[in-house]
């Protein structure tokens, strides 16, 4: 049952080795399809899945294709809008929750509702927002809700706002309340206190939350495929429509570019969080939205 102490200390016994092998296998499993996509982005054939030869043709033709670049630009614009709106709402919500009294009813209710948005399957968000936008925009005559970009930003904010709120709340949870009280005692107005004390303390959480909202929006297929309007097809929805017709290597080429950009953005988030003194576990918790 227990190996000799000196062997255990070195951690080179059989169970530890088996665990190490398992770790390598799982990593291979996790990276296999990503490597395949990156590899097939260099496919010079006409169809993505049928390997023809190695070349950069797909990158060239993808960048020259207006439909593809248009879809990527739509996605980036929607992601930027989502990041801004979700950070604004999430910051207010997060600060309010962090400041709330321990048993405040409104805080518990808001936390519950936001958690509920996190656990609702995306398909439900999609089918709920489609009739809602039609009700508001077509039946209600509120023209902005017929605009494809407005719809994307609103829908993506609805699914990512909870993440930003929880990240900001977590960031401020350990904040020293006396800082704000001291500012109040020194006759700082509420607005000054917010601007000079609370915001600087919360900002790593806000920045991380905003970047998370950006990537969540960029990744979203399901909700966007329901609420999209002609002329505002985001990138994942474009790929999804191509799955039914035929996938070409261009899809893999742009995906590889987007992957590299996403990784850079995430490295930035991790860097910001680490610099603000977050532990490794805290960074992971932030990334998973809990």
């Amino acid at each position: 049952m227990s190996a000799p102490a000196h062997r255990r200390a070195r951690g080179r016994d059989l169970p530890a080795r088996l665990l190490g092998v398992w770790g390598v296998i799982v990593f291979a499993f996790l990276f296999l399809p990503i490597l395949v996509i990156v590899m097939y982005s260099f496919n010079t054939g006409r169809l993505l899945a049928a390997w023809h030869g190695f070349g950069f043709d797909a990158y060239a033709s993808a960048l020259g294709n207006d439909v593809i670049t248009g879809a990527v630009i739509t996605s980036l614009q929607a992601a930027l809008g989502t990041a801004l709106l979700a950070s604004a709402l999430g910051t207010l919500g997060g600060i309010a929750l962090a400041r709330a009294r321990p048993r405040a009813l409104w805080a518990a209710a808001l936390t519950f509702l936001l958690a509920f948005t996190l656990v609702t399957p995306e398909i439900v968000d999609g089918i709920a927002l489609l009739p809602w936008f039609v009700t508001l925009g077509v039946d209600g005559g509120l023209a902005p809700f017929n605009n494809g970009m407005v719809r994307l930003v609103i829908a993506h904010t609805a699914i990512s706002m909870a993440t930003v709120t929880f990240v900001v709340r977590a960031r401020l949870a350990g904040m020293d309340r006396r800082l704000e009280e001291a500012a109040a005692d020194l006759y700082a107005s509420p607005l000054q206190r917010f601007k000079d004390i609370t915001l600087p303390l919360a900002w790593p959480g806000i920045a991380a939350g905003g970047l998370l909202a950006f990537t969540l929006s960029l990744d979203n297929t399901i909700v966007a495929s329901f609420i999209q309007q002609p002329g505002y097809t985001p990138w994942p929805v474009y790929i999804f429509s191509m799955v039914r017709v035929s996938l070409r290597p261009e899809v893999a080429a742009i995906s590889t570019v987007m992957l590299v950009l996403t990784l850079l953005a995430l490295a930035l988030v991790g860097y910001v969080l680490r610099r603000s003194g977050e532990s490794a576990g805290g960074v992971v918790k932030t990334f998973t939205g809990g």
């Binding site: 399809p33 996509i37 899945a49 297929t221 999804f240 992957l259 990334f287």
Partner: peptide, 27 residues
Amino acid sequence: LLALVLVPFWTNFLVRTLGWQIILAPE
């Protein structure tokens, strides 16, 4: 290693699935 686990987590869901379509194809 933790950062490496995050890579697939933040790769586009649809694109990862397409990777499996290529891997599992009969040809």
